[in-house]
Simulated assay, not measured.
Amino acid sequence: MSMHIISPGMLTTVQDLGRCGYMASGFQQSGAMDRFAAEAANLLVDNSEKDGVLEMTMLGVKVYFDEDNVIAITGAEFTPTVTDFETGEVTELPINRAIRIKKGDVLDCGSAKSGLRGYLAVAGGFDIAPVMGSMSTNLKCKTGGFEGRKLRAGDVIPLRHPQGWLFSMVGRVYEPEKRTDGTVTIHVIPGPQDDYFSDKGKNTFYSEVYSVTADSDRMGIKLDGAPVESIDGVDIISDGIVAGSVQIPSAGKPIIMMADRQTTGGYAKIATVITSDLPLLAQLRPGGTLRFKKVDLQYAVKRIKADKKALKKLQTNILRADTFTSDS
């Protein structure tokens, strides 16, 4: 019971919600860059929201299964198709809903029309042994996921409990908020070292439109734009870094630390991106633009509660649809 990789895409790794509790020992958290999309994909196929998924960057995987299965693709706007094993007929597939895939049929996840990272969940999950409590791939340490690396053509990913059908297939639909084109507003809480920066520097940080550079990755999103002025340099005694920490190195150009960030850093952090906006950052392509907006902790908590409510609503809708639908 396996998924066979015909083509691995540009950068595809196994990820879940991250390797929590080990940063004090120097191990990066890793995990899905767009955690919300990963959780939604798992819920669509009846997995735990913490289960492993494939994170696909720009170009998706092409695979086939040796058993019937149900899959879901969320995140970036990918263009999946399935090729019937017997007839060769190619059918376009929707995203953000559960889809049946027959044994031998070829699933081609296509490329992202918008956004950057897509998530493929399979019903029953991947049969991959966790490392320190997580399936997430840490590419730098070559740990976790599938052999600690990105996927390659010819890989065979074992499946735990493939499911050829799930109750309420019609109701397994997720309707994400539509992304708007143009500059994205990223909400941040000031600090913890915003006192290292001059009033001019802070004004620059909150008024400038920054662009994502091509050397951004899972470790950090590097920005280009007007430099942020410090009062007397940005070097600090190294301290802990969280997802969303906005470091200002000596050149003054912000770097937003993401899933594969280092555990500590020695540059002052002018602000911290709220958890609910990290998925927006995960979907920004090189050349995409953003601006920062200052908010308080109460706003951040309100947004997290709204995210949890949205995922709970997805679960409820699936159960409600099963009440009114005998089969689909």
Rank of each mutant, 00 (worst) to 15 (best):
I5L: 03
I6Q: 02
G9N: 03
M10N: 04
T13L: 03
D16K: 11
D16Q: 12
L17T: 10
R19C: 09
C20Q: 15
C20E: 15
G21C: 08
G21D: 07
A24W: 12
G26N: 09
Q28A: 15
Q28K: 14
Q29I: 15
Q29Y: 06
S30L: 07
S30P: 07
S30N: 12
A32H: 05
A38C: 13
A38R: 04
A40Y: 05
A41W: 04
N42G: 06
N42E: 04
V45T: 08
D46P: 02
N47M: 11
S48D: 15
S48E: 14
G52I: 00
E55C: 05
M58F: 14
F65V: 02
I71Y: 04
I71H: 04
T79F: 07
T81N: 07
F85N: 12
F85E: 12
L93V: 08
L93I: 07
N96V: 11
A98R: 00
G104M: 00
D108T: 11
G110C: 05
K113L: 15
K113T: 14
R117K: 11
L120E: 02
A123K: 06
F126Q: 08
D127I: 00
I128M: 02
G133K: 08
S134T: 08
M135N: 12
S136K: 08
N138E: 01
C141I: 04
G144R: 01
F146Y: 11
R149S: 00
R149V: 01
A153S: 13
A153E: 08
G154Y: 00
D155H: 05
I157C: 02
P158D: 03
L159E: 04
R160Q: 13
P162V: 09
G164A: 11
G164R: 07
W165I: 10
W165K: 13
F167D: 10
S168T: 06
S168P: 05
V170K: 14
V173Q: 10
Y174P: 00
T180C: 10
T185V: 15
V188P: 01
Q193W: 08
Y196M: 14
D199M: 02
K202C: 05
E208Q: 14
T213R: 14
S216K: 04
R218P: 00
R218S: 01
G220M: 06
I221N: 00
K222R: 15
K222I: 05
D239R: 09
G240D: 05
A243N: 12
G244D: 02
Q247V: 07
Q247G: 06
I248F: 07
P249Q: 10
P249C: 10
S250R: 13
A251M: 09
I256Q: 01
A259C: 10
A259V: 11
Q262F: 04
T263V: 13
T264M: 08
A271D: 00
A271M: 04
V273Q: 01
T275N: 09
S276W: 03
L278E: 02
P279C: 07
L284M: 15
L290G: 02
L290W: 02
F292R: 03
K293S: 13
K294E: 13
L297P: 00
V301L: 12
V301F: 08
R303G: 01
K309E: 15
A310V: 09
L311G: 09
K312E: 14
K313C: 05
K313S: 11
D322K: 12
T325H: 13
S326C: 07
S326I: 11
D327H: 12
